[in-house]
């Protein structure tokens, strides 16, 4: 091997390095999949429904549920049945990539952060979420779940106006 060989390697390697750099600037690198095939997370999102639950002075026999919420039987069950009005305030989809946190500002000014930790088999995803107050103080420091696609989990209890916020989260494609 001649003395020029290292220089040649460097010259040949530069475009590769540059290519990686461009890919990172253009967005988060796709996570590796178990099979080595195309990333499974590109089309995965977490859907966040922010519902305002309140109790009217004259309690209704049946709750008034915003039709935009859709079918969510949980709201008719205890302890949500203590509230009789449910209004959809926000419905957002946060695209998820492994180890890339995504955030959503809630109506109360707090920040919901969701992060895909791992893609498991059978449409199951390990997801971490947290809620921080304005200024960065933690409210819900961490909630980590394994969620099958389409199955909801709920984070409730944050005070809002005269009621609470009910966050309905589910991983969707």
């Amino acid at each position: 091997m001649t003395r020029r060989t290292p220089v040649l390697f460097v010259l040949l390697g530069l475009p590769l390095v540059a290519g990686v750099a461009v890919a990172e600037d253009g967005g988060p690198p796709p996570p590796p999949s178990a099979s080595g095939a195309a990333p499974a997370t590109a089309a995965v999102s977490v859907e966040v429904m922010v519902v305002y639950a309140s109790r009217t002075k004259q309690r209704r026999d049946a709750p008034e549920i915003d039709p935009k919420i859709g079918d969510l039987p949980e709201l008719r069950q205890d302890p949500f049945s203590l509230y009789d009005r449910f209004e959809l305030l926000q419905k957002e989809r946060l695209p998820l990539h492994v180890a890339v946190p995504r955030s959503l500002t809630l109506p109360n000014g707090r920040l919901l952060v969701a992060e895909l930790l791992e893609v498991l088999q059978n449409d199951v995803f390990r997801v971490s979420t947290s809620i921080t107050r304005p200024g960065g103080k933690e409210f819900l420091a961490k909630l980590e779940v394994k969620a099958r696609r389409g199955k909801p989990f709920i984070v409730a209890g944050q005070s809002y106006r005269d009621g609470i916020l009910v966050l309905v989260l589910r991983v969707v494609k």
Partner: peptide, 20 residues
């Protein structure tokens, strides 16, 4: 469906969370 319920003091006004 699992529910995580966080106890939060009532909002003071206008839906803004208190800065605690």
């Amino acid at each position: 469906t699992p529910v995580v319920w966080v106890v939060d003091p009532p909002a003071t006004s206008g839906g803004e969370a208190r800065s605690l």
